[in-house]
Amino acid sequence: MSLTALYEQIQQSDTVDIPQGWLQGRTIYGGLVAGMLMQKAVLAVADEGKRLLSASVTFVGPVQLSSVKLTAEILREGKSVTTVEVRLWQDGAVQSILLASFGAQRESSIQVSHERAAPDYPAVEDLQIAQHHPLAPECFKQMQMAWAEGQYPCTAAQQPDFGGWFRFDPAWHENREMTVADLMVAFDMWPPGVLPMYTRMAPASSLTWHLTYVHPLQHQVQDWFKYKVFTDYAGDGYSTEYAHLWDAEGRLIAISRQTVTVFA
């Protein structure tokens, strides 16, 4: 099932069948879960005059390859901002929650442009697209990723963090206009920043994820984007990190902050 077909299913029914190809270990990849929640939020808001401002996701429990139920509640609908909560249910329990704010543009005398500049990476054609390791999560096949700095996961690196280019793999995803649901699906595909420090294969998973949407998407699904992650702190089985996403022209699209559970 394509993402387009999945989004159509979300529009037609509260109960959705999760497609094949998105496993991350024994559970479903969190980015796909976040994308489903966001698609439900967009449908619930149903206001083209309001664009996504920010979203917070809490991954309460593991989501299995089975049907799920999505419920949405508008918490407040103001003139400028609408706040919506979406929950994903499986087997009668809440497994993930999204809280998102959508806002209309307003006149303001305050203008600040201190966005972090995009890194000057080599052209993606001059880099090697990472091959899917047999022990890597199944969901990685959905994307093309080219490391431009830092080390690969599980290479016993002395320092965390990395960056590079990525996009939806054209072999799996037809080209079309990219949506904010697609953004959620794509943005979370990079592994946690501490994974290069792992000395062996071991799990790590997002616990909470906050995303700030900066410049609106004007892109196609198969367009390349730049990504860079920075780990603030890691210890006692958790890490906290932030990451930036730019388009190929260097426009800052989104900023994320995550709390990650570390099993190494």
Results as ranks from 00 to 15, higher is better:
22 W>F: 02
21 G>A: 14
240 T>E: 03
201 M>V: 15
207 L>A: 14
189 M>N: 10
169 D>P: 01
46 A>Y: 14
264 A>I: 07
150 G>S: 04
155 T>K: 00
206 S>H: 07
25 G>C: 09
233 Y>E: 07
34 A>V: 04
216 P>A: 12
129 I>S: 09
14 D>Y: 08
31 G>F: 07
193 G>E: 15
121 Y>W: 02
98 L>M: 05
125 E>R: 15
154 C>R: 04
96 S>L: 05
10 I>P: 02
260 V>D: 13
77 E>L: 02
184 M>E: 09
132 H>D: 00
137 P>M: 13
196 P>D: 08
219 H>W: 00
237 G>W: 00
14 D>K: 12
205 S>N: 10
205 S>P: 09
99 L>W: 04
17 D>Y: 01
33 V>W: 10
178 M>K: 10
31 G>H: 13
185 V>K: 07
16 V>N: 04
200 R>F: 12
74 I>F: 00
71 T>F: 01
218 Q>W: 03
108 S>K: 10
124 V>Q: 01
230 F>L: 06
202 A>D: 14
175 N>E: 07
152 Y>C: 05
115 E>T: 13
154 C>D: 03
262 V>L: 06
202 A>E: 11
16 V>I: 14
137 P>I: 12
151 Q>F: 06
6 L>D: 03
74 I>A: 06
90 Q>S: 15
75 L>M: 09
27 T>F: 04
192 P>T: 10
33 V>A: 06
19 P>F: 02
23 L>V: 12
36 M>S: 11
137 P>Q: 15
120 D>I: 06
156 A>M: 04
113 S>E: 14
84 V>P: 04
118 A>D: 04
87 R>E: 04
133 H>T: 06
107 E>A: 07
210 H>M: 09
13 S>I: 11
27 T>K: 02
124 V>I: 14
224 W>Q: 10
157 A>S: 15
119 P>Y: 14
211 L>G: 05
32 L>V: 11
197 M>P: 01
246 W>E: 05
207 L>V: 08
74 I>V: 01
231 T>F: 04
256 S>H: 10
118 A>I: 08
92 G>Q: 13
62 P>D: 04
20 Q>Y: 03
45 V>I: 13
254 A>E: 07
89 W>T: 02
93 A>V: 10
157 A>P: 14
55 A>H: 08
108 S>T: 12
158 Q>I: 01
10 I>C: 08
222 Q>I: 08
13 S>M: 08
103 G>S: 12
53 L>I: 06
199 T>Y: 10
138 E>N: 08
234 A>Q: 02
130 A>I: 09
9 Q>F: 05
200 R>K: 14
2 S>C: 00
78 G>C: 08
1 M>P: 14
88 L>M: 09
60 V>P: 00
109 S>R: 12
198 Y>L: 04
255 I>C: 12
259 T>D: 00
108 S>A: 11
249 E>T: 15
19 P>C: 11
238 Y>F: 15
149 E>Q: 15
170 P>F: 11
223 D>H: 13
3 L>N: 04
3 L>I: 07
54 S>L: 06
222 Q>E: 00
237 G>R: 02
253 I>S: 01
53 L>C: 13
76 R>M: 05
12 Q>K: 06
113 S>K: 15
59 F>P: 11
162 F>N: 05
211 L>E: 02
177 E>K: 00
115 E>V: 10
248 A>L: 01
164 G>F: 13
78 G>Q: 09
88 L>S: 08
1 M>I: 01
234 A>S: 05
188 D>W: 15
97 I>N: 03
61 G>M: 11
